[in-house]
Simulated assay, not measured.
Amino acid sequence: MTAMTMPISDLFSVVTLSDPANRAPSWKALLGWPDRGDAHLDHHARTDAQRNLWASRLDDAVTRSPRPVLLVAEGESCHATAWWARLSPASYVSKVAGALLFAPRGDAETAQKFLSPRVVLPFPSAVVDGHAPRHADDLQALAASWGSRFVEAGPVSIAAREPAQEPAWQQAHGLLMRLTANMVDRKLRVAETLGIRL
């Protein structure tokens, strides 16, 4: 019996989230991926009302997707995405296959605006930063609070592992799967140690 395979791009939808003032999103600068995915939301929430409207639009983008969703965010959008994921109904976040969070940035005001329960994100995620090694400790702590893997890498170390002909968003999905595979292995080992059958 022959197994049927589908291109990864047919298995998920990409929702990109970025600052409208940034002409070159971090994922484009680092890896040459497109500016936008299947759906795109600019993030410019200066007030609670704007933040809530943005969250409503993300709800809509995720729930309307015919496939599981890969979120790709940068900058303050990473904090907004984490806030959304922690507070959204399980039925919404269950459609998210994972998230790649590029160069999260924010200050005390950002932390206050996106205050949420201190629980890990309900899907696999990775914080990717290739620009600011001096902030690596802060980003590692942030990644740990989100339950995310932390990757401090430039374009060569991330992209070189992917075949050059592979479409960009397939590379994104492949990257997420590689970065989160050991998280799954760790959870299985813990479950086995505790005698839990999955």
Rank of each mutant, 00 (worst) to 15 (best):
H44W: 09
H44A: 14
A45M: 04
A45F: 06
R46C: 13
T47N: 05
T47L: 04
D48E: 09
A49D: 13
Q50G: 06
Q50I: 02
Q50A: 15
Q50Y: 06
Q50F: 03
Q50W: 02
Q50K: 09
R51V: 08
R51M: 09
R51N: 14
R51E: 05
N52E: 15
N52Y: 01
N52W: 01
N52T: 14
L53I: 10
L53F: 08
L53C: 02
L53V: 15
L53N: 13
W54S: 09
W54L: 08
W54D: 07
A55P: 00
A55M: 13
A55N: 15
A55T: 12
A55W: 01
A55H: 11
A55C: 15
S56R: 09
R57H: 06
R57I: 01
L58P: 07
L58K: 11
L58F: 06
L58I: 02
L58E: 05
D59A: 03
D59V: 08
D59Y: 02
D59N: 13
D59M: 04
D59R: 07
D60V: 05
D60T: 14
D60G: 09
D60W: 05
A61W: 01
V62T: 07
V62Y: 04
V62S: 06
V62N: 11
T63P: 00
T63E: 08
T63V: 12
T63C: 14
R64M: 04
R64T: 11
R64W: 00
R64D: 10
S65G: 01
S65M: 02
P66R: 12
P66G: 07
P66I: 04
P66E: 07
P66L: 03
R67A: 12
R67W: 03
R67V: 09
R67M: 08
R67F: 03
R67Q: 10
R67N: 13
R67G: 02
P68W: 00
P68M: 09
P68G: 11
P68F: 01
P68R: 13
P68Q: 08
V69Q: 06
V69I: 04
V69G: 06
V69C: 05
L70W: 07
L70C: 07
L70T: 12
L70P: 11
L70V: 08
L70Q: 10
L71G: 05
L71T: 05
V72H: 04
V72A: 07
V72Y: 02
V72S: 08
V72G: 04
V72E: 08
A73M: 03
E74P: 00
E74R: 00
G75M: 01
G75W: 02
G75V: 03
G75E: 06
E76C: 04
C78S: 05
C78V: 14
H79L: 14
H79E: 08
H79T: 06
H79A: 14
H79W: 06
H79F: 12
A80I: 07
A80N: 11
A80C: 03
T81W: 02
T81Y: 05
T81P: 00
T81V: 14
T81L: 13
T81M: 11
A82F: 08
A82C: 12
W83Y: 10
W83N: 06
W83H: 13
W83L: 06
W84G: 01
W84H: 14
A85R: 03
A85M: 05
A85F: 05
A85E: 05
A85T: 10
R86G: 02
R86N: 11
L87T: 15
L87D: 08
L87C: 11
L87Q: 11
S88Q: 15
S88F: 00
S88M: 14
